[in-house]
Design a protein around this nucleic acid. Sequence first.
DNA 1: TATTGTTATACTCTATAACTATA
DNA 2: TATAGTTATAGAGTATAACAATA
Lengths: 170, 170
Amino acid sequence: MSDAVPFLARVPGIQYGVLDTLTGYAVRRTQLRMYEDFVQALAPWHITPPRYSALVIISMNPGLKLTQLAQILGIARSGAVILVDALAELGYVSRDPMPEDRRAFSLQLTERGRTDLEAITATVQAHDERVTASLDAQERATLHGLLHKLSGIADSPGDPVPEAVEPANQ
Amino acid sequence: MSDAVPFLARVPGIQYGVLDTLTGYAVRRTQLRMYEDFVQALAPWHITPPRYSALVIISMNPGLKLTQLAQILGIARSGAVILVDALAELGYVSRDPMPEDRRAFSLQLTERGRTDLEAITATVQAHDERVTASLDAQERATLHGLLHKLSGIADSPGDPVPEAVEPANQ
DNA sequence: TATTGTTATACTCTATAACTATA
DNA sequence: TATAGTTATAGAGTATAACAATA
């Protein structure tokens, strides 16, 4: 027998107690729901969230070494190897030799990687908008600002993220 | 050689491109950081986020069947078995027979479960406050409201979730 | 010696499917 | 037949540790 269990944030009649007061639980609950939708939407490309992150990072920062990619993504080098292997197998990433250091490889998007990344990104953006459809533009901006604060992203110079945005709800 | 890789939301000199505009990436990034802190803070009790959720749900809704717990948590029954096994091994949860259905068990907290859950919850709350320390009370309330909206929690009838929640401290 | 990429191995969390004992 | 709990097995995603080639 199969148990596909779509996650319901709230089951009627159930008491959630302290869970409802924890920011961490709210974030986790939201993340689970979004992750599910992402995986489903990107299944045709065999792209998962970590793979997409890696793809974008390599695209925006061509010539990275695998060790650098691992640091940026916050994973172990062995994990980066698996990630790059998968992206290489999909034909999206190539390991080019580095003349100045024959131990290392320079990571690049392939031609196909560049092309498909556009379609993939369009799908990701559609997914992101669909999943946040319950928020208006201002609420979304507020949420971004708050999450950036939480995850330790200092307001970047040209983009003073949150305070300017009003509480929105009331 | 070991690679402990603490996750940095932003590595200097790296371009994040579209990732910075995606709500999903911001949520995932925040969740990763919080998860790490939770696991570290609760390690003395061998409590992980899924275990904590299960513990609170069982505590607030005594007498649940394992299949109900699985539905509430959004996991497969086989996963609930593993979760309950772990909590039972820690001495926190018991499976009591259900006279009206001899196939099922009634899930309860043990005496020790009730006692330890208080200390565990205090630790979880301390963790949650520490990790959200960069937000003031109003920002936290706003974040809760937005996340609840996102994760599909309709303002429940008797408890119009976000607006009514007072800033509490001030 | 130290670093780069790799491999071997293991652990957590999750899933599907089949089994058993009841209903 | 269908359901409750369980077990077997597998697949992501992550980790640590050790290795060969190169610095």
